[in-house]
């Protein structure tokens, strides 16, 4: 299996190379800057607002939730776009023509997307720690919990990003297939506004998806224990949170390889050529 291991090594190398290239690209720097500025602006203009009866200031409540939202958004939309794009431009086909190429490709994609999460979280987190007081009252233990929750959140969401990128008919359809549903789910999942502001049935829908639970988990790690009164049922619901995220992770890890294999089987020069024709013809 040394050839397979070599392919995984190549994938790690690929992910790292693409990550460094992304950091150096003005286009991607602009994207990180945009996320940072918009989020910080929202927090800054609400810096003196209190949230519900918790007595917490808005930035304190919203920062962990927004980080959770960024994890989900980045790891579903990121791989989705990447994969849809690279199916069309021939990157995937190149790997299909290599020995153990798909293993390398998927490793590369997972590496890149995980690494990319870092700057998009840091541009929000670091300025927030400097600008707002009391956003992270806990110590090293809390940070460790944050790290663990982010890893669990990655496992729960990234496979579904890969699935999305495999089933979406083309990059042009990512808006309706990817962005719209993810933004809708994020909007009802208590990221910017506490979930209690929603109707009951909307709250139920939101709790099916991982976004709410990642946000809840991160709030439990960031916020002081007394803030629990701001949550549904006055509880952090750590057990159900781990269970729901774990279930999404297991399901994703079972489904994604199958969907990826099926998608890869269908790749050929003609499909790339057809995608090119489609891209050149936006209006039809």
């Amino acid at each position: 299996m040394s050839a397979s291991r070599q392919a995984v090594r190549q994938g790690l190398r690929r992910g790292w190379t693409e990550f460094v290239q992304s950091l150096r690209s003005a286009q991607d720097q602009g994207f990180y800057l945009f996320i940072g500025v918009v989020t910080l602006a929202v927090l800054w203009f609400n810096r003196d607002n209190e949230v519900g009866e918790t007595g917490l200031l808005y930035p304190t409540f919203a920062l962990p939730s927004i980080l959770g939202g960024l994890v989900t958004f980045g790891l579903v939309i990121g791989p989705g776009y990447s994969l849809a794009m690279e199916r069309e431009d021939g990157t995937l086909l190149r790997h299909k023509a290599l020995p153990h190429g798909m293993e390398g490709y998927v490793t590369g994609q997972l590496t890149l997307q995980s690494l990319t999460l870092l700057p998009s979280l840091l541009v929000v987190l670091v300025p927030s720690l400097l600008l707002f007081d009391g956003v992270m009252p806990g110590g090293a233990g809390s940070w460790l919990a944050v790290l663990g929750l982010i890893v669990l959140g990655m496992l729960a969401t990234m496979p579904w990003g890969m699935v999305l990128g495999s089933v979406v008919p083309g990059v042009q359809k990512m808006g309706t297939w990817g962005m719209l549903p993810v933004l809708l789910i994020t909007a009802i999942s208590g990221i910017f506004v506490p979930i209690q502001a929603m109707w009951g049935w909307v709250q139920a829908v939101a709790q099916v998806f991982p976004v709410y639970w990642i946000g809840l988990g991160l709030r439990s790690a960031f916020l002081p224990p007394e803030a629990v009164v701001g949550e549904l049922g006055d509880s952090w619901r750590t057990g159900p949170m781990l269970l729901v995220l774990g279930a999404w992770a297991v399901a994703g890890l079972l489904v994604a390889p199958r969907v990826l294999r099926r998608m890869a089987r269908r790749q050929s020069g003609s499909t790339v050529e057809a995608a090119r024709e489609t891209a050149l013809q936006w209006v039809r």
Binding site: Q6, R13, T17, D89, R94, L98, P99, H100, V272
Partner: peptide, 28 residues
Amino acid sequence: VVLQSWRDHPRWTPRRLLSYLGGYYTPW
């Protein structure tokens, strides 16, 4: 296989891409 590429790997350089793709063949 020589494929008709279109716009893949835009940020890579030919040297980096070839050395990366070549890595898959060392076990063979």
